[in-house]
Design a protein around this nucleic acid. Structure first.
Lengths: 340, 340
DNA sequence: TCTCGATGCTTAATGGATTTAGCACATGCG
DNA sequence: CGCATGTGCTAAATCCATTAAGCATCGAGA
C-alpha cells in the first residue's frame, strides 16, 4: 500500500532530461530528434527504477486503454462459451491487451448497463458474444469504439465472426456417406421452425442447409426426420427409442452431441452397436463426445479460433467490416465404420 | 466516434456552478454545505446532458477504478472454472464493479505479466483462481491491492475461498449409508499419494478424510479401495470391470463424476442396475451427472457461490483474512435407492 | 458598531502522462 | 557577417475529476 509509484518525472530526473523527452523515448515515437545517448539514458533510468506507466493518466490523454470488453449473454453454460472467451483472451494477450468480461444473461437492461460500464472505462473496443446466436443486441447507446459480433449478427455492427455451419453440415454428411452408409439415414433434431429461422439461431438453418445440399449432391435422402425443440440427451433417447419400433436405421445425423448421447443409450438398449450397426455423426464436439464408447464423430464448434479471430478483427483498424466464417473441423472418432 | 464526451465542466456550466460543487454533489459527499437547490440543478444538468464521469480521470485522483482482476490458470477446461467466473462476475456487477479476466495457463512468466498488466490498470483488487488447487502462485511483485485466493491457498495471501471438502466427504457417505447400503462398499479413485497431498490438491485429501471419518463414525468400512491416478471415464470403466470379476459391490463412492460415468458403463455391461443393485455417489456435479440414467447423485462443487464469496471478500475491506469454507451441496438423483 | 461563526460556494492545486509550440545553439550558404 | 535551416531538447498546456483551502455574505451576540 505505502509504496508510491515511480512516475515518469522520476525517470526523467534520473536521466537528466525532461518528462517530454522521457515520454517520447519510452513510447517509441519514430520522428523524434532525440539523441541515441538520450534514448540510452532514459531506458536505463526506467529499468533501474522499475518504471511502469500509469495507464489511467495515459488514457486520459490518449483515449487508449489497451483494454477491450467482452460482453456475453452467457458465460458459464457451455464449453463453447468458455472456448470463445479463452480464444479471445489469448489473442488479446498476444496484442498486449487485457479484457473485461461481463455477463448480461441476455437481459437488455443489463446489456445497456454493461455497455455504459465499459465505455466509462474507455475500452478500445467491444465484442458482443452470444451463446444463442439469434439474440440480437439492441443497444440504443452510441458506441464510439469498434464493435465485433461473436457468434451473432447485427445490422448495426457489420463485423461478425461466426462458424461456417453450411460447410460443417456438408462435412458431416460426407463423413457418414464415406463410411459406407447409403440408406436408412435419419436426421435427428431437425425442427421445421428452425429452418425458417424463427426459433433457434439461423446458424442451425445453415447447418441443415449444408446437410441437405450434401445429401442431394450425393443422391441420398433421409428415411426419417425427427423434429424436436430441445436437444438434450433425454430427448435423443426417447425419440430414438420410439423410432426403433418402426425402423432399423443405418446412420443417424444428430444435430448436437447431447442428442447423440441419448441416441447411444437407446441403441444400446436395443442391442444395436454404434458404428457396426448404426453410424452416427453429430455436431458440437461437446465434452461428452470423447467419453462415449465408441467415441462420437462430431463436427466441432471452432470456439477458440472464433474468439481469437474476433479479437484480431477488433484490434485491426483496417480489418474487414463483414462476416467472417470460421470453418468447423471434423473430429473423427469411432462412431462411424472404418474410422479409428 | 466524433462525439466528444460530456465533462463535469459542461454540467457545472449548465447548472451555473463550479466544477467543484458539481463534483461534490454528483459523488454524493455527505458533509457538504451545498444547498438543496444546487443539488437539484446539478442533477438536472447531469441528466440533461447524459453526463458520465471519466473514470480514467477519477482513477488518476482517487486510485479507485471499480475494476477488479481475476487471474486464473485455466478458464476453459472445466465447468467449475466458468462457474467460479460467473459467480464472481455476478457479485462484481452487484457491487458496480467490473472484472478483467486473464488466463495464465499456470505459467509463472505469464502470471507475472498478468499481475503487472492489471496493476498498471490500477485494479482495486485481484483474485487468483486456480483450477488445480495445489498450484501456488509465487509472484515476486509487490501487490499493493487486496488479494483473495480462489480454490487455492497461499501463505503470502491469507484470504482464501475453498470448498468444504471434508463436509462434502461426510455427506457423500451419509447419503450412501442412508440409502441402505451397509456393506460391499467400494472407494473408487482413492490414491495413496493423494492422501499425503503429494500429487493432487490437498482438497482431495480433505475429501477423503471426510469420507473415512463418516465411515468410521457409522462403523462402516470399505471392502475395496481402488487407486488410480487419472480420473477419466475410461479409468472408471476399466477398474470397475476388473473389480466385478472378483466381487459384487453394493455401493460405490466415486471421487468424481467421470469415474462414476465409467462405472455406469461397466455395471451396465455386467447387467447390474445402478441404484437397485449398486448405489453410487460421487463428486463434482459435472454436466454428465444429469445426463446419466439413472441420474447421478453427487456432491456439487459450489463454484458460483465460491466466485461470489471471493469477490465479496475482496471488496469488503474489513473482511476476514482467513480461509472461508463454502459448503458443498448434495445433488440427489436416482443413483441411490429410495431417492427420486 | 464590530467581531465571530456559520453558510454556500469558488479557486486552484493535484494526479501522471502526452504533445504542441518553441527555445537555444550549431551549421551551411551566399 | 547575416540569415536560413537543422538539431536536440524543454516549457507548458492538456486530458478530467477530486479536494483542500479560502473567499464572500449574512445574522447573531457583545
Amino acid at each position: 500500500m505505502g509504496v508510491k509509484r515511480v512516475t515518469l518525472a522520476d525517470v526523467a530526473k534520473l536521466a537528466g532530461l525532461s518528462t517530454a523527452a522521457a515520454s517520447m523515448i519510452l513510447t517509441g515515437r519514430p520522428d523524434t530528434r532525440l539523441s541515441a545517448e538520450a534514448h540510452a539514458k532514459v531506458h536505463a533510468a526506467a529499468r533501474e527504477l522499475g518504471y511502469r506507466p500509469n495507464l489511467a493518466a495515459r488514457a486520459l490523454r490518449t483515449d487508449k486503454t489497451r483494454t477491450i470488453a467482452v460482453i456475453s449473454d452467457h458465460v458459464a453454460t457451455t464449453r463453447f462459451a468458455s472456448g470463445l472467451i479463452r480464444g479471445g483472451l489469448a489473442a488479446a494477450e498476444k496484442a498486449k491487451h487485457v479484457a473485461l468480461l461481463l455477463e448480461t444473461g441476455g437481459d437488455p437492461a443489463r446489456e445497456a448497463d454493461a455497455i455504459e460500464a465499459v465505455l466509462d472505462r474507455q475500452v478500445d473496443g467491444i465484442i458482443f458474444a452470444a451463446m444463442r446466436s439469434r439474440e440480437v443486441f439492441v443497444p440504443d447507446v452510441i458506441i464510439p469504439v469498434p464493435v465485433v459480433m461473436l457468434n451473432a449478427a447485427s445490422s448495426k455492427f457489420p463485423t461478425a465472426v461466426i462458424q461456417d455451419e453450411y460447410q460443417g453440415g456438408r462435412t458431416a454428411v460426407q463423413l457418414l456417406a464415406d463410411s459406407g452408409v447409403k440408406d436408412g439415414i435419419v436426421l435427428l433434431g431437425h425442427n421445421a421452425e428452425t429452418e425458417q429461422g424463427l426459433f433457434r439461431s439461423d446458424t442451425v438453418a445453415r447447418r441443415i442447409a449444408g446437410i441437405r445440399d450434401e445429401m442431394d449432391s450425393r443422391g441420398l435422402g433421409f428415411d426419417a426426420e425427427i423434429s424436436c425443440w430441445e436437444w438434450e440427451p433425454a430427448h435423443g433417447y426417447e425419440l430414438v427409442k420410439t423410432l426403433l419400433k418402426s425402423m432399423r436405421p443405418k446412420g443417424i445425423v444428430c444435430l448436437n452431441d447431447r442428442l447423440a448421447f441419448g441416441a447411444y443409450q437407446a441403441l444400446a438398449e436395443a442391442n444395436l452397436r454404434v458404428a457396426e450397426d448404426v453410424g452416427i455423426v453429430s455436431f458440437d464436439n461437446d465434452e461428452l463426445a470423447e467419453y462415449l464408447r465408441p467415441g462420437l464423430t462430431t463436427i466441432a464448434l471452432p470456439h477458440e479460433a472464433m474468439g481469437k479471430k474476433a479479437v484480431e478483427l477488433l484490434l485491426d483498424a483496417k480489418a474487414t467490416r463483414e462476416h467472417v466464417l470460421v470453418s468447423m473441423p471434423a473430429i473423427v472418432r469411432g462412431s462411424l465404420r472404418g474410422a479409428s
